[in-house]
Amino acid sequence: MTKPEDIRRGPRHVAIIMDGNGRWATSRGRPRLFGHHAGAKRVREIVEACPDQGVKYLTIFGFSTENWKRTQIEVAGLMSLFRRYIQKETRALKANNVRVRFIGDRPGLDPKLQCLMDDLEEATRECDGTNLTIALNYGGRDEVARATKRLARDVAAGKLNPEEVNEETLPKYLDTRVLPDPDLVIRTSGEARISNFLLWQSAYAEYEFIDTLWPDFSEEVFARLIANYAGRERRYGGVKA
């Protein structure tokens, strides 16, 4: 059981690269989409576990800008899964007081999916519990490029003095501008890379790369990683006093 003092020391914002759905399915002789459906079910458990773990913000990597390279069958299946997830989970998310936001290049997605995303954001706008952010058609470099374009337009329009641009300016143009930076980034499935996820925001995040495949990621594993984080000392480039 997580102790109250551990919650106080724990991460406020956790970001997760949910990897391993396809391998989980193929290891069971099932198609990759079977694993993605299993992974979607796991999301609800982890979202519902956040309050007990003291996690106010949860950001999950649903579909990257690079995932379009997958087979048409898998991409189409994933898009269908996202639509079904939104339609099925809206009531539960509202009941659990979860506010949902989406980040990524939204215009690059199917218009019907975009409408569902807009509707879910609006339906949960007044929720003040867990903040769930879902990255769809998202890439960290793409996000920074889009943010830079918006910043450049403001400079060209005279709204922003280029001499005043610093590292505190760009975050105001990122998709995550209303969110705090992640404290802890978790990647499942044994891969030890960040895959273009929250590149700017995670500059000082703690990382956990674990072997567990996402459909096997449980509340117990989540609690263990939260406890591990609580035992770390974050110095942000400084030294221990």
Rank of each mutant, 00 (worst) to 15 (best):
T148V: 12
V178M: 12
Y173F: 13
R193Q: 11
S202P: 08
L199V: 14
L136E: 00
L116F: 14
E122Y: 11
E219V: 14
Y229L: 03
F222R: 00
L184F: 05
G190R: 06
G139C: 08
F102G: 01
D142T: 13
V165T: 04
L170G: 00
I186N: 01
G139A: 08
N166F: 09
T212H: 09
T133Y: 04
R146K: 09
N196S: 08
P180A: 10
Q114K: 03
Y207E: 02
E126A: 14
N228Q: 10
A203N: 09
P182S: 09
L151V: 04
G140C: 06
L151P: 02
T169Q: 03
S195N: 07
A147L: 04
R146W: 08
E219K: 13
A135E: 01
L136V: 15
Y173V: 04
R232Y: 11
L136I: 15
D216A: 09
A192R: 13
A157F: 10
L151D: 02
Y204C: 14
D128W: 08
G104K: 01
Q201M: 04
E121P: 00
G158I: 11
L109C: 08
P180Y: 11
T133G: 01
R153S: 13
D211M: 12
S195A: 10
A147M: 05
T130K: 01
Y229P: 00
E126K: 14
L198I: 09
A147R: 00
A152M: 14
L151H: 02
A152V: 12
L198Y: 05
E163S: 09
A145V: 15
R224Y: 09
E126N: 14
L160S: 08
T176G: 02
L198E: 02
D216Q: 07
L120D: 00
F222N: 00
K149G: 02
L198S: 03
R232K: 14
T169L: 05
E126Q: 14
E208P: 01
W214N: 02
T212D: 11
D128Q: 15
E164G: 10
A156R: 10
C127H: 07
R106Q: 13
P215L: 08
W200P: 03
K149N: 07
E164F: 11
R141S: 06
S202E: 10
L160G: 05
V144D: 05
I134T: 01
E163G: 15
D118A: 14
L151Q: 02
G231F: 04
D128R: 15
N137M: 10
L198Q: 03
L213S: 03
L174I: 07
A205N: 09
V100R: 00
L113R: 02
D118C: 07
